[in-house]
Simulated scan of single mutants.
Amino acid sequence: MPWRPSSDRLPLWDWVRARWAAEFPDWPVLTGGCPDGAWSKGTAVADALTRTSARTVIVADADVWTPGTSAAVDEVLAGRARWAMPHALVRRLTPDATLAVLDGAPLDGQPTVETHQGMPGGGLVVVARDVLDGVPMDPAFTGWGQEDSAWALALTTLAGPMWRGTADLTHLWHPPALRRSRSVGSPESLARFRRYVAASGRPDEMRRLVAEFCPTPLEGSPTVYSYRNANTGDEVEYEQPNARLEMLPNWTRIAEPAPEPEPVERPAKSASKDAWLEYARSLAEESDLEGLTKDQLIDRYGKEN
């Protein structure tokens, strides 16, 4: 979570953090920040990523909640999408409703200032780590505005279309950030966003833009949407979701083949038990590996062949 403490947002963060801990106690929640001065969401996200090696990452604002997160995570884990958003609509609570929620009132059914279609790339995004490493959020966007939309264009162009759920995302109220208008953060951010619009759908140009702040822009072709006919076994591919096939019961969206894992080099006998465990897991799917001693692991998996 990109996060910079402030008196008006601390109560929201306390509530959101407690909700994550209650709903997903095994998921580590990391915050990332940026140096004093102009706020950069991209810098904050990159900062948090330095403290995790997770293969699937949720990038979430610190003032939102949606019950659809698990479904979006499942889509990315299954390989049916390389990035996903669980929500369709954003419900922005009123100040009084937000106070009521912080005092323990249920989130559902609270009055809103407005409800609108969620912007791609904003609020909460689930993304495969290799995609995030190759298509990070641009740190050059500072202040409020345009960084989420630019990121969505880059992800779509280089990683493929997002999977989108139908859940609502609730946004807790706080005083709005400084901005030029409700849609534009600053002239500088707008100008940079227009570069993303120009590169949208053009992978080579988008890679050159991403390369300005990322040493390893995502290579390869964007993900396609693949479908299989349960009656005939026929398979077809589309660059975008096919609304007709999504609705037909005899067509099912299928996952991409999982990438081949990187080979793990056989460690020296003097290496740690953890190194031998990692090596053993690369060769076998046995459930009792944790119970083996280092000597037993070496005896079972340490042969040259």
Rank of each mutant, 00 (worst) to 15 (best):
T232N: 03
P86Y: 04
Q146G: 01
A48S: 07
A230H: 08
Y225R: 12
A280V: 08
W65N: 03
G79I: 01
L209Q: 00
A105E: 10
S40I: 02
R4T: 12
D168R: 11
W173Y: 12
Y279E: 10
L209C: 02
G233H: 02
L292G: 04
A128G: 09
V64P: 13
A275D: 15
D138Q: 01
V224T: 15
L292S: 08
W173F: 10
R129G: 03
S7L: 12
C34D: 09
D168E: 15
T170G: 02
G220P: 03
P187R: 07
R300F: 02
R82E: 08
T52R: 02
A211Y: 05
G79M: 00
A81P: 08
E188H: 07
V184T: 15
S272W: 07
K41L: 09
L277A: 06
A88S: 10
A191V: 06
W3I: 10
S7M: 04
E75T: 05
D74P: 00
K303I: 05
G32C: 10
Q146K: 08
D103E: 15
F24S: 05
L93D: 11
R266T: 09
E290K: 09
V264K: 04
L49Q: 04
K41C: 11
P86N: 05
P176M: 14
L30E: 09
N231H: 13
